[in-house]
Design a protein around this nucleic acid. Structure first.
Lengths: 228, 228
DNA sequence: AGGCTAGACTTACGGTGTAAGTCCGTCAAG
DNA sequence: CTTGACGGACTTACACCGTAAGTCTAGCCT
């Protein structure tokens, strides 16, 4: 008479795997460790998941499922900004996701739904198909690239930065990388600096450089924003 | 009297690992397979490399070593464009590198040298320290993000795209992702379309939106390009 | 009541990174 | 020339990995 356990399912397996990855990192997600966490033996997982690769696919898709979809009614720029913030938050909540995104070629349903919604928001914002493709590519590339860099930094808080920067600077010869040391001493170590703030700069730069190229925008089109 | 083999060294080990990764992917780089390729036993590698993680660190750094450094004399925009092209080429030559970049927090000497050179090019192009940091962040984020997406696409050539797109479209219900199907049918399947071309659009968009914010640019400063 | 089946289980296999210890060729000092 | 040290390649061994294959049992449908 074991202590009643809820039935296994693909969703429960993936959810547990995500929690495990959040704690131990992607490498910590082994079939045995995951099974133990679920009070089960390793091979039982294979009744709900085709294998480790399929499991990782599911995890990535689930992360995309956490991103709130842009609504097509709002101003496209606000929609893109909200989506970027939501995406970045999700990817930071699950730092292993970025590393898993490459190497996984088959997009899951949440990813497709997400991409579709983004394209929709751009289209109703007045972007042609071609221009929407362009915009989508720049914004997403920037988003993923930024988070990737952000997550691979060896520090999280400004306090940690202080400490680590000191170590780095004392380690390497002071004049070997002059511009790098200049950046660290004269900029990054200034009180109030957070690399995270760079996100806003780049995002605004990109969004402000993008312009709808169709006149048919139905409701909330502000004149004077088109390039032609 | 064995068939003379050149002495092992960290460089030779890393070079062989890169060749192996190019052929079999990052997962194919096992200590035993690498040793076999070098005509040696697995444990011998540990005399030149601290462990697998150290090996991967070295590989990533070596990829950065392949990127040609921007020269500080040229026009900053051209320098950034050349560097972006060179970086993208290197990352496409070694597709495993992007996936290894996150999870590796200690930058190697080639990475530091590269970052320093980029900052230098921006500084002599008339960027303040703060603005150079901004520019560096946007450009690099876009660069890595784009390559990452590019490499995770399930196709390489336009011909493959045709084939795969057909499969995808027939797989999923036609009206489930309307904007996605619109994008594929009305844009991506048009003859001459290559996702790689999107790179140029985004890069130009970003570079054209960046402006030096210091007047002291010594030689090749074209007036009328500043934003203030 | 009987049988089917979904799903958890046990066992086993080849492969992984690497700790620990062995062994030998080279080379410098006496 | 002898000897000693030592760097570096080697063998062995271990714990852990993903998963193929087969077994067992509880619950449901007929």
């Amino acid at each position: 008479m074991q202590t009643k356990r809820p039935p296994l399912s693909r969703e429960r397996v993936i959810a547990a795997a995500m929690a495990l990855a959040d704690e131990k990192g992607a490498a910590g997600v082994t079939m045995r460790a995951l099974a133990t966490r679920l009070g089960v033996e390793a091979m039982s997982l294979y009744n709900h998941v085709a294998g480790r690769e399929d499991l990782l696919d599911g995890m990535v898709d689930a992360v995309f499922g956490e991103i709130e979809l842009p609504v097509s009614t709002a101003d496209w720029k606000i929609a893109m900004r909200d989506r970027a913030a939501s995406s970045r938050a999700a990817l930071r909540r699950h730092p292993w996701a970025v590393g898993l995104m490459d190497s996984r070629s088959q997009p899951g349903p949440a990813i497709l739904r997400h991409h579709d919604a983004v394209l929709g928001a751009l289209r109703t914002g007045g972007f042609s198909v071609a221009m929407a493709a362009h915009a989508f590519s720049v914004i997403d590339s920037y988003l993923y690239g930024f988070v990737m860099q952000e997550l691979s930094l060896p520090f999280t808080s400004a306090a940690e930065l202080d400490e680590i920067a000191g170590d780095i600077l004392s380690d390497l010869p002071a004049d070997a990388y002059p511009h790098l040391t200049e950046l660290i001493t004269k900029h990054a170590l200034k009180p109030g600096y957070e690399y995270a703030d760079e996100f806003e700069f780049g995002l605004s730069l990109i969004l402000d450089a993008l312009h709808p190229d169709e006149v048919s925008s139905p409701v909330t089109s502000r004149p004077g924003s088109r390039g032609r």
